[in-house]
Design a protein around this nucleic acid. Structure first.
Lengths: 191, 191
DNA sequence: ATCATTTCTTAATCTAGGTTAAGGACTTCC
DNA sequence: GGAAGTCCTTAACCTAGATTAAGAAATGAT
């Protein structure tokens, strides 16, 4: 729980009373690997703050191909933002990659919290802003760079993740097939 | 100016006094086509609310190829969000497509406004949330669909834009070359 | 009107990355 | 500890979309 408060403290400073309110609205949970916290077609009731382990979100396209939308390590939030915000069925899966501990904040509680603790609305505003910027950068990168350059950027940005994720998930995140990813990696080793 | 207030009213309801504050912090401007409101390497001081005309933002990659990041029609906001939020040099250009009238809100004024009129922070939080959702959807679409399907989605989502934008800009937005776009369109006509 | 610039089209050729297939290396779980 | 899955790799072949080039059509400036 302290991790969450530390995370919030990076952007806004809460009084002890406000911190209490935050904790009152959240709930802690642990999950085994491969647990699905959300499936396509379901409403994303909770957003998840990761304190241990790794989660990922992905969608599955018409051809049954999985596309990783995001990873979440300790200190990161994850949700199907479309579904969470609209409270309508979404298209994303959220799955536990590695034995995880997460803090849950439901849409309902989030909205109440915004009313009671306006600083938390600021906190999430800033979080979403950062998220938008990162997302827009990824879009630009996908349009501007080759798979090789995208992989290079990814490994520099998330050096830890490169070692603990299955390659097929990295391949999916940067937008190539596992086979091509494997070929590409072999090519890079020769240099 | 009324357009801006109407737009805000869709998400939060301001008192007349609050509306006054908003207007006090904004400024109106008109621009000729091809005017560059922002260049790569510059700091994005203002965000722009379009009341007339069309703007677009794009970046230019290492090979000199332009990639359209977004269009903005009346009722839409546009900015280089990375640069605007961090007040550091950005990579985007913002250009006037069609004779435009826009309302300017600087980063500085926005932050003051947030402190004076908390509802405006809520307004922008909601705007950014929607923006993030749209952006994430575009990312997923780019990974999941062919150029043809992306074009189809685009023309259904923005039927008006299809008619008033140069094809090369649409091609760039959906992520293909103008040549391929032209070929694709010819193919679609045969069906 | 006319020259210049930009945009669009068509066609030939090329390539980054996809597909299919098959074997080997790890896990995982009775 | 062995059967059944996953995951990773390699290789041959395939295709969506890029590149190059060149002409036609539209737009704009003088």
């Amino acid at each position: 729980m302290q991790q969450l408060l530390d995370n919030i403290a990076k952007h806004v400073s809460l009084t002890p009373v406000e911190q209490e309110r935050v904790l009152a609205f959240t709930e802690i949970q642990t999950y085994k690997p491969k647990t699905l916290l959300l499936k396509e077609g379901e409403v994303c009731i909770n957003s998840f703050f990761v304190t241990k382990g790794i989660l990922r979100s992905y969608n599955i396209d018409e051809n049954g191909v999985e596309h990783v939308v995001s990873f979440a390590c300790p200190g990161w939030w994850i949700a199907d933002m479309y579904s969470f915000l609209s409270q309508r069925p979404g298209q994303l899966y959220i799955e536990v990659n590695e034995e995880a501990e997460v803090i849950l904040l439901s849409k309902e509680n989030r909205d109440t919290l915004f009313a009671e603790v306006p600083k938390m609305e600021r906190f999430f505003r800033i979080l979403i802003e950062n998220s938008l910027v990162a997302n827009q950068q990824r879009l630009i990168d996908n349009m501007s760079f080759t798979a090789e350059a995208r992989y290079d950027k990814f490994s520099k940005k998330y050096p830890d993740l490169v070692h603990c994720l299955p390659q097929k998930q990295i391949a999916s995140y940067i937008g190539v097939t596992p086979e091509f990813f494997s070929k590409m990696k072999a090519r890079l080793l020769k240099k």
